[in-house]
Structure formats: structure tokens, C-alpha cells
């Protein structure tokens, strides 16, 4: 047992560390609201219709500036994704113009896209992209929902509980929450006293609040033919879900297989425990 006098040692130590607090460092923490996503949690799966709408929105709005270079058109027909039909995928691919070659005459040529082609990026290179966007580079969106995090922003002594909660509930949607917040977070007018740089737009959730991307969202800019409301919030949710799928195309498979693996391991663990207990009950230890 621990002797009483030694509590003093520990008390002194605790007195030293408890004052550690959040916000000792410069810089402002932005609170990003958590959304509920169909693909979140242990049984999370994508909503296929939502992915199709999200793709449509990406194609008609975001694709003017942002590429998806790690995706191929055929991915759009893949299981666990928007699951467009083979015909639709062919047609979607054919809308793109792919530069191929060299041909037998040694020349590069243009041809319509095929399902096996990678998504064609809107700009030939980063410099061209910058020139078209007032010097700012629109990032490729293939893995954007995994490339943005949200700091926890809780005191150190509760942080471990948040980790456990996040891992136990399979929370991996930081990036999606950020993206949604970014897309709905534009303000027409910067708050009083905020000096905006030339060509910048005010956004509640972008770090530093000044973003070079003009607000791409407004009601009714893309037609949904399934009667889904054409609001900024709906668009933002749909395109975010689509980009989550783009970043993690095997998410459904991963969670499905994961569940089976967990059940299998659980049974194995219980059996091993019982065997071990039986064996050891024969001897003193």
C-alpha cells in the first residue's frame, strides 16, 4: 500500500501541473459545429442519391477551379460510390477532353474521355490555376476531407476522454465538418473593423477569415431533378458527402469488413480467455 506521507509528494506535483491551460499559445481557435453524416459512425454508409447530387454540384460548380486528379471516371460506377450505370459513366467521361499521344505521326491529339481516364483537371498546371484565380491556388479536392483537421480545444485533463469517445464512436468526420462549415460560412460583409485584403472574401471558418475563393454557393444554382431542396445548406452537405467518398472510396467496404473482423476477434478472444482460465485453474499462481 502507498504510505500516507507520500501523498505530499503527489500533492505538490499536482499543484504544479493543474494550471496548464488551453490558450497559452497565440492564435484563435475557431469552433466548428459537428454535423450528422450518413457515413459517420460504426455502421456509416454513403447515401447513394446524395453522392450523385454532390457529384452534379461538384461538376457544375467546383470543377471550374478544382480538380480531382486521383479519381478515374470509372470510380463513379464503382460499388460503394455514386454507382452511376455503365452508360452514365461512359457519357460522363466523354464530356471531358483528354490529351493523348503521341500518335504515329509523333503528335499529341485530343480525344473524348474514357471511363479508365483520370479526372481531367481544370488547369494544365499550378501556374495557370494561379493566374486564373488572382494568385491563389485552388487545391485539388481528391483527399481534401482528410487533409483538414479540427483542433479539439479542450483542457488537457479531459482530452483523453475525448480521444476515447472519438475512437469508440468511430468519429472521423472532422474534415467533412470543416468543409461544410467553410461552404456555408461566407459573409457578404466583413465584420466592422476587419480590414479585407484585395480580392479576399470573408469566411467565418477559414483560418484567418480571409479566403481567396469567392463564395461558390447560392440557392438554386444547380437543378436537382429528384425534388431535393435547392438550398445552400443542402448543396454544401451533398458536395461534402461526395468529396468524402472521393477521399475514402472504400469507406463502406472498410466499415462492413471491420464489423465482421471485430465479431470474429471478439469470439476468438472469449474462447482464448475461457481456455486460459480453465488451464490456469488447475494450478496455483
Amino acid at each position: 500500500m502507498l504510505g500516507k506521507p507520500h501523498y505530499t509528494i503527489f500533492a505538490v506535483f499536482l499543484a504544479l501541473i493543474v494550471p496548464i491551460k488551453q490558450g497559452w499559445a497565440a492564435g484563435e481557435a475557431i469552433d466548428i459545429p459537428t454535423q450528422s453524416w450518413s457515413f459517420g459512425g460504426i455502421f456509416g454508409q454513403f447515401d447513394q442519391a446524395q453522392l450523385q447530387r454532390g457529384f452534379k454540384f461538384y461538376k457544375e460548380v467546383c470543377a471550374t477551379c478544382h480538380g480531382l486528379k486521383f479519381l478515374s471516371y470509372r470510380n463513379l460506377g464503382q460499388k460503394g460510390g455514386p454507382e452511376f450505370s455503365e452508360e452514365q459513366v461512359k457519357a460522363l467521361a466523354a464530356e471531358a477532353t483528354v490529351i493523348d499521344g503521341p500518335n504515329d505521326d509523333g503528335e499529341m491529339f485530343e480525344r473524348p474521355g474514357r471511363p479508365t481516364d483520370r479526372f481531367v483537371s481544370p488547369f494544365a498546371n499550378d501556374n495557370e490555376a494561379r493566374v486564373a484565380n488572382g494568385g491563389a491556388l485552388p487545391p485539388d479536392l481528391s483527399v481534401i476531407t482528410k487533409a483538414r483537421g479540427i483542433p479539439l480545444g479542450v483542457p488537457w485533463y479531459v482530452e483523453p476522454f475525448y480521444w476515447i469517445r472519438d475512437i469508440a464512436t468511430a468519429y472521423q468526420e472532422h474534415g467533412a465538418n470543416y468543409l461544410y462549415a467553410l461552404l456555408v460560412g461566407y459573409k457578404e460583409q466583413a465584420p466592422d473593423g476587419v480590414e479585407m485584403a484585395e480580392g479576399m472574401h470573408y469566411n467565418d471558418y477559414f483560418p484567418g477569415h480571409q479566403i481567396a475563393m469567392p463564395n461558390p454557393m447560392s440557392d438554386d444554382i444547380v437543378d436537382y431533378d429528384d425534388g431535393t431542396p435547392q438550398t445552400v445548406q443542402q448543396y454544401a452537405a451533398d458536395v461534402t458527402a461526395f468529396l468524402m467518398w472521393a477521399a475514402e472510396p472504400h469507406l463502406e467496404e472498410r466499415k462492413r469488413i471491420g464489423f465482421r473482423v471485430m465479431v470474429y476477434l471478439l469470439i476468438l478472444t472469449v474462447l482464448l480467455y475461457l481456455a486460459k482460465k480453465k488451464l490456469w485453474s488447475r494450478i496455483e499462481h
Partner: peptide, 15 residues
Amino acid sequence: AMLVFYAPNYLNHAD
């Protein structure tokens, strides 16, 4: 397995 299948990027840095 819990981490691999349900929170594979939790310990990774988004950057």
C-alpha cells in the same frame, strides 16, 4: 482492428 477499420486516420496528422 478498432483503429484500422473505424478510425484509421485518427492518429495521423491531417496535413
